Amino acid sequence: MLFLKRFSELRADFADEAILFHDELRAGTRTELGCKWTPMGHRPLAPVRIGYENTYLYLTLCPFSGQGYAAFLPHLNSEQFGWFVEQVQACVGPKSLFIADGATAHRIDLFDERKLIFERLPAACPELNPVERFFKEVRKQLKNKVFDCLQDAQSRIQVIVEGLFAEEGKVISLTCFPYLKNTTLLI
Rank of each mutant, 00 (worst) to 15 (best):
D148K: 06
F134M: 04
F135T: 02
Q154K: 15
H22T: 07
K136Y: 02
T175G: 03
A166I: 12
Q154L: 09
T60I: 01
G102Y: 00
E119P: 01
N77G: 14
F21W: 05
R6N: 14
L174C: 07
V88P: 03
G93H: 09
F81Q: 07
K36Q: 07
L150K: 04
D152Q: 15
F84E: 09
G93L: 09
P122N: 00
F134G: 03
Q87I: 06
G51R: 04
A27H: 06
R30Y: 08
L2A: 13
T60K: 02
L128W: 00
T38V: 15
H22L: 10
L61F: 07
V92I: 15
N77L: 07
S173T: 10
R139T: 01
A46N: 07
F84P: 09
I160G: 13
L174V: 10
F147A: 13
A15P: 03
A153P: 00
H106N: 12
L59T: 08
I50G: 00
E79C: 05
R107H: 02
C35R: 02
H22V: 13
N144H: 04
V171T: 14
S78L: 03
L121D: 00
F111T: 02
G93K: 04
A123N: 02
G41W: 00
E17Q: 12
F21P: 01
I172R: 09
E79D: 13
T55F: 11
T184H: 11
L59D: 05
A103L: 12
A124Q: 01
C62H: 04
E86P: 03
M40T: 11
G68I: 14
A90R: 07
E168H: 13
L4K: 15
D148V: 10
C149M: 08
L59E: 04
L2G: 09
D109F: 13
Y69N: 09
A124V: 02
Y58A: 10
Q141D: 10
P39A: 10
Y58G: 07
T175S: 05
L33F: 08
N144W: 10
L33R: 08
Q67A: 12
L76H: 06
Q154G: 15
Q141P: 04
E168N: 12
F81S: 05
F72H: 08
L20N: 05
G163M: 13
Y179P: 00
T60F: 08
R120A: 09
K136G: 02
T29N: 05
A123E: 01
P122H: 01
D13S: 15
M40K: 14
A124Y: 11
Q158A: 14
Y52F: 14
E24A: 06
Y52S: 10
L73P: 04
F3Q: 12
I19L: 03
P122K: 01
S65C: 13
F64V: 08
G169F: 11
E137P: 00
L128Y: 05
A105K: 01
T55E: 04
A15E: 10
V171L: 12
Y58R: 02
E32V: 11
A12Q: 15
F118A: 09
A123P: 01
D152C: 13
A105W: 09
S8V: 15
L180R: 06
M1A: 14
C62F: 04
F21C: 10
L174T: 04
